[in-house]
């Protein structure tokens, strides 16, 4: 439970970096995956997930006013689940073929990716409600209390972190109740193909990066609807 708390707080800080505070890229999966892994005791799994995630969403960028799906949330959830509920736990269905050892990473990653898109929707909602601070600021300017600007910035930043914390707590708690059970009854051959996917999925990132760099059609990228 302590691990869950620390991971949620850290994950919330990391996810706030991508849109709200800093933009010093502690929200990139290649950073936050290993760090989360280090905290709960398995840096290697975190690094693997971070690497995969970094490659998969390599060209997803916040162009103009559009918001990208949040990769740090995906990495945090997947790393926590993959480290705490690893692959070959006792109690597997007898006869299950033990696969290559990477299958739990891919399984939790595939389950966590939609959460990044859900978190993006929450972010859009949050940004809509931020208009409240603008109205309040206009009132305070008329009253001559300019110091309110500091208060508005700090409280909004705090809300960003709080939102991420609650989101991560709820999602990780629900997922850790449901997903390990599902993972246990997955047939061996599907686990085998998930292990294979660990080596194939980097191709998605390499291919997307190649098309962006090579064909230079950034306008298409900008119009692309990320779903």
């Amino acid at each position: 439970m302590a691990a869950l708390l620390i991971v949620s707080i850290l994950g919330a800080v990391f996810s706030a970096d991508s849109t709200a505070i800093g933009q010093i890229m502690i929200s990139r999966p290649i950073f936050c995956g290993p760090v989360i892994g280090l905290i709960i005791g398995d840096i290697e799994t975190g690094l693997k997930i971070g690497m995969l995630m970094e490659l998969i969403w390599i060209t997803v960028v916040p162009m103009g006013v559009s918001l990208p799906p949040d990769s740090s949330v995906v990495t945090t959830i997947a790393t926590y689940l993959a480290v705490i509920f690893p692959g070959n736990i006792p109690g597997n269905i007898p006869g299950n073929i033990p696969a290559g050892g990477q299958e739990h990473i891919v399984f939790y990653l595939l389950m966590a990716i939609p959460m990044g898109i859900l978190f993006k929707k929450l972010d859009i909602l949050h940004r809509k409600y931020n208009s409240y601070f603008v109205y309040k600021m206009e009132q305070k300017i008329n009253e001559g209390k300019f110091g309110y600007i500091n208060k508005a910035i700090y409280s909004s930043a705090l809300f960003f972190i709080l939102k991420g914390f609650i989101f991560l707590m709820v999602i990780i708690l629900t997922a850790s109740l449901v997903l390990p059970g599902i993972y246990r009854v997955i047939p061996g051959n599907i686990k085998d193909s998930m292990n294979l996917l660990f080596y194939i999925l980097p191709a998605v990132g390499l291919g997307t990066a190649m098309t962006t760099f090579f064909f230079k059609k950034s306008r298409r990228l900008r119009n692309e609807k990320i779903k």
Partner: peptide
């Protein structure tokens, strides 16, 4: 670094800019 903390759809980065 706090430029986008109060990013909103009406004035966008104005609050961070003023901050």
């Amino acid at each position: 670094f706090m430029l986008q903390a109060v990013w909103n759809y009406e004035t966008m980065q104005t609050m961070g800019f003023l901050y």
